[in-house]
Every structure is written in C-alpha cells, then in structure tokens.
Design a binder for these strands. Structure first.
Length: 281
DNA sequence: GTGGCCCTGTGA
DNA sequence: TCACAGGGCCAC
C-alpha cells in the first residue's frame, strides 16, 4: 500500500523523532526481515542516525558508526510495513519484526524505541555500506523520481515502452514510486484507459499523464498520503488523500465527473478501476 | 506478456 | 470458508 507519497510522509514524520539519535541496541525478532546485511548488524550499537530519506518506495536511514563508517538501513514497507517511535517499555506484538532502542548519546541511556512492524511480512530491511547501493540490482535499475523531472522527460520514459500504459506506470524501472492507487488515479485524471498501449498514445497525451502523475503525487504528499486500512505515518496518523480517490476502490460506484458506473478489470495482474466514458484508449 | 509465490487480515 | 488485497521477483 505505501507508495511514494506514503513513504515520503513516513520519512518526514520519522526524521524529527530520530535524527541525531543513537542506536543503543538493535534487535531482530524475525530473521527473514533482514534480507541483507546481518553481518553488519554488530556495527549498529552506537551508530548515529544522520538522515532519513526516500528513493522510490524505499525509506533510507543514513547512519554513522562509532568509528566513522557510513551505513544505510534501507526499508521496503511493501503493503503493511510500518515504522513507529514508541516510548520505552512499549512491548513488541506479534507483527513486530525489528526493535531499535534509541538514545541521545552513543552509550545511552535509552530514551525511545523504533519499531518495524509488518503484518504481511512482505516488507524487508537491508543493512548496507554506501558502496553496496549502486550494485544492488533493484536500486540500480530504479527509474527517475517523478517529482524531480519535467513532465516531458517522464513522458519520454513512457513513450518507447511495449505493452499497456498501466504496466509501464507500475514498472519501477520506468518511473519510480508509483503503485496501483496512483497509477489508476493518474490514468483517470489524464483520461487514458489503463489497458491502452504505450505505443498508441501521442506525446500530448503522455505529457498530460505525467502532469497528472505529478499533480496527484504532490497533492497526496500534501495530504500525508492515502490510508486504506494499514498505512499510518511514523506518528500513527492516517493520511487523507483517500478522500480524493476518483476511481481506486470505487468499482461499481458512479464516476464523479460523468456519472457513469465505474468498471473494474485486471491489468498487469492488478485490480484496476476506470471510467469507460471519461477514459479513452 | 501472465500467473504463482510470499503472507495475514478483512469482508462477503 | 474463501476470495481478495498487492510489490517485486521468478518461471513459463
């Protein structure tokens, strides 16, 4: 569920709570959650949290160890991953995968707890050195950030692709950070059918689409993301953008623009909702 | 290209 | 009870 706006919101809400804090202890309650980097785990105690940032749907925690080495904790929240800061004494529950004990000096005392919870266990974390990032295939292949390039540049990314436009939007190597919700919402706003072939779309329509992507992602960030059921920011607050959905989750309801019944189908293996009157191939 | 897999909570 | 939700990866 967390897509670009949700991960951005988590990063923004997490940073003021943990930046310049030190990891006193790092405990993994579910070994599979740490996909890569268990051998670096002993370096975590004493490490300072320098920065929280986002790339695509990844949340990155930049760390400086006691001997000045840099480390990166990369989280993919997938559908149900959450990062929360809790007061000391807060107990892990059945979905808690990682517990970081934090303090404001390297040797303690402990002052707060950072939990990584994940009900569906699709999420993961990788502990890496900075030089490991560019040789991580997933990272290496990520496409451009949709809010850091012009609509024309993003349209160019989509223009040569084979297959349907929704599959291209979900492909993280084409444009990074878009998932099922924002793909459907962007296609609706641009008046394009999800199953339209990229090759059949004019440059004008592709630019209309990339403009829609930018507007929707920015509005979603401004509203702290979309909360369907699981997603919360690092304070536990829900987002508000779900109130603006035109199509996602509204199959069988009326189009807000034309009143037609919204249709659902499967495109690129994902549940897809669209308006057959407002959206053309 | 599609479909299965990972996994659990939800709702019909 | 069971379909469904879905990001990324993999086999086909």
């Amino acid at each position: 569920m967390p897509e670009l706006p949700e991960v951005e919101t988590v990063a923004r809400s997490l940073e003021p709570q943990v930046k310049r804090h030190f990891i006193i202890n790092a405990e993994s309650l579910a070994p599979k959650t740490v996909e890569v980097g268990q051998q670096l785990w002993p370096l975590l105690p004493g490490a300072e949290i320098v920065r929280i940032r986002r790339r695509a749907k990844l949340l990155l925690i930049d760390l400086a160890t006691t001997n000045g080495q840099r480390l990166i904790l990369a989280f993919h929240l997938k559908m149900t991953g959450r990062l929360f800061v809790h007061p000391l004494g807060f107990h892990p529950h059945r979905h808690t995968k990682l517990v970081f004990t934090l303090g404001t000096s390297p040797g303690g005392p402990a002052e707060s707890l950072l939990f990584f919870d994940d009900a569906r266990t699709f999420g993961y974390c990788r502990l890496m050195r900075p030089e490991d990032l560019p040789v991580w295939p997933f990272w290496n292949k990520l496409g451009p950030e949709p809010l850091e390039h012009s609509p024309e540049e993003l349209a160019e990314q989509l223009s040569g692709k084979k297959g349907c436009i929704k599959a291209a939007l979900l492909d993280q190597t084409v444009i990074a950070g878009i998932g099922n919700i924002y793909a459907d919402e962007s296609l609706f706003r641009a008046g394009i059918r999800p199953e339209a072939h990229c090759s059949a779309l004019s440059k004008t329509r592709l630019v209309r689409l990339t403009n829609a992507i930018q507007a929707i992602l920015q509005q979603a960030i401004d509203e702290c993301g979309s909360s369907i059921r699981d997603y919360r920011d690092a304070h536990g607050n829900a987002g508000a953008f779900q109130n603006n959905f035109n199509v996602y989750g509204r199959a069988g309801e009326r189009c807000k623009i034309c009143g037609a019944l919204l249709k659902s189908c499967r495109v690129a293996g994902r549940g897809t909702v669209y308006c057959s009157r407002c959206q053309k191939k």
